[in-house]
Amino acid sequence: MISQIRFAGIGGQGVILAGLILGEAAAIEGLNVIQTQDYGSQSRGGHSIADVIIGDEPIYNLIVTKADILVALAQLGYKATKHELKKDGLLIVDTDLVKPDREFIGAPFTKLAEEKVGLALTVNMVALGYLVAKTGIVKKESVEEAIRRRVPKGTEEINLKAFNVGYEEGAK
């Protein structure tokens, strides 16, 4: 089976890092995976999209054609890409920042990052934790290993904490 997962937000939310860590976790599990990204020219404030395609068979569609899962962290990102989510696809949103016009699940990820982790910047890891808990697309331990490998040195603990805050929220 092949799953197309898209993270959408605005520049600066760490959307691409979330995609990268999910991809690395899949690679750790020996799955086939491709991770790509699309961003506007602005370094901050433009829309930012990270795609992860995970499969246990060879991947030929190199871009997300119809996403199985869309994780939207900002209205701008949601609007830019909502039409590329499958009709029966899963929409996960930051419920404070995105007002979807279709069925969705989610939590106030940014608020959770601020209040439970103490750093709004970790919103990407909170959302990733929520996604993994809800879908089981990769194992929790693989993501934790990927976080240790990929986040800047010295920030491993806070990112792991954020991931777990999101995971617990999703497991509720």
């Binding site: 991809g23 690679a27 086939n32 995976v33 491709i34 991770q35 790509t36 990204q37 190199l62 871009i63």
Partner: peptide, 9 residues
């Protein structure tokens, strides 16, 4: 740009 920016194993 696609191969350049894409991550793969």
């Amino acid at each position: 740009a696609e191969v350049g920016h894409m991550r793969e194993k």
